[in-house]
Design a protein around this nucleic acid. Structure first.
Length: 260
DNA sequence: ATTGAGACCTGTCGGC
DNA sequence: TGCCGACAGGTCTCAA
């Protein structure tokens, strides 16, 4: 996408999440992608116009990239049922945004609205960055009264962790999702050993998830505790069973025996 | 201010 | 077989 220009933008459905600016297609057409980045779960495309195209894939969002020019096809195939936006790029590629459940979002923002974006501007550190340390996590959790697991889903504490990996990280760290978030910090906000373990577990879980995505043969592997209610706990030497509880409206899976 | 519940959306799955 | 409700995900909005 980088250095490619939007030659044609087709909005096949006007009511995706986040209100599209009225002239979405017109403002995008003719601009060039100068940079492609990511922040938390958002895809960030910097444009030559100074605008920023912010994209969130939700849970079922996906991009399909086709190259009619290379394949000698005159036009892209018939759009599928959930093809919501089609980008014809100057590079010859046709990039189609497909999102069956429509939890994805696309927003075209000016420099000012992007800088003041309420969610982006208050995001916590990237979990795989050096900025995400036990000290930072402990300080962020110290005065929270919520349980630990809902705190991990708060993007202001750590950016980009979702329900599944929060669950997996807590299991890996041997920490109960039900304990108060503040228990991983001392009264003065310093990290306890539990905070150190949790940060290491989050990084490990995310790194192995990335690795798995890069290795097709492992992609179908299931998670260790997520969606395994009633099954034996996979922890070595643990004879517990995986339980399911609901916290803040989301499913939590954990082992009450080895997660304390 | 912090927290949680509800809404959004639709494909899938379990139960009758 | 077919229908129907429950459920999953991330984030925004609203209310306690």
């Amino acid at each position: 996408m980088r250095d490619a220009r939007f030659e044609r933008v087709v909005l096949r459905r006007a009511n995706l999440r986040r209100a599209f600016v009225p002239d979405f297609a017109a403002r995008l057409t003719g601009t060039t992608v100068t940079d492609v980045g990511r922040r938390a779960k958002h895809l960030v495309l910097a444009l030559s116009s100074g605008d920023t195209l912010l994209i969130h894939l939700g849970m079922t969002g996906d991009f399909r990239v086709e190259s009619p020019a290379l394949e000698g096809e005159p036009a892209p195939a018939d759009p599928g049922t959930h093809d919501h936006v089609v980008f014809q790029m100057s590079s010859g590629f046709v990039v189609t945004f497909n999102d069956p459940r429509r939890f994805g979002a696309m927003d075209l923002m000016t420099a000012v609205t992007y800088a003041r974006h309420p969610t982006l501007s208050s995001l916590g550190p990237e979990p795989l960055s050096e900025a995400f340390t036990d000290g930072v996590l402990a300080a962020a959790c110290a005065r929270r009264r919520t349980a630990l697991k809902p705190a991990l889903l708060d993007q202001r504490i750590v950016a980009g962790l979702g329900n599944i990996y929060a669950v997996e990280a807590l299991h890996r760290a041997g920490l109960s999702p039900l304990r108060k978030a503040s228990t991983i910090a001392t009264p003065t906000g310093k990290p306890r050993p539990t905070a150190t373990r949790l940060v290491a577990a989050i990084k490990a879980v995310l790194n192995s998830a990335v690795e798995r995505q890069l290795r097709p043969e492992y992609r179908s592997a299931r998670f260790r505790v997520y969606d395994r209610e009633g099954e034996a706990c996979p922890t070595r030497g643990c004879d517990g069973r995986i339980r399911r509880v609901v916290q803040a409206g989301r499913s939590t899976f954990y082992c009450a025996t080895c997660q304390r």
